[in-house]
């Protein structure tokens, strides 16, 4: 296989969203008041806890950090 070509235009990545921990809809990282439900997006509610979203989001953050370090 020959050397891989590199596109002249480098891409940009989608901004990462996080879940509002109350209503489990996506918000931008750093959001305090959820624009969807009006609650504190950082405080876990029952739906977030019951869906095991905390552990899943932690895994995603780790993958993101590892991905950036590999760059």
């Amino acid at each position: 296989m020959s050397e891989r070509s590199t596109p002249s235009v480098k891409g940009e990545a989608a901004p990462m969203l996080v879940l509002c921990r109350h209503c489990v809809e996506y918000v931008f990282a750093g959001t305090v008041t959820c624009p969807h439900c009006g609650e504190d997006a950082r405080v876990a509610g029952p739906r977030y806890r019951d869906g095991a979203y905390e552990a899943i989001e932690a895994m995603r953050r780790i993958e993101d950090v590892l991905g950036r370090r590999r760059r």
């Binding site: 596109p7 891409g11 940009e12 993101d64 991905g67 590999r70």
Partner: peptide, 9 residues
Amino acid sequence: VSLQDQLDC
């Protein structure tokens, strides 16, 4: 698609 895939097109 990974983050790197997006950045490298």
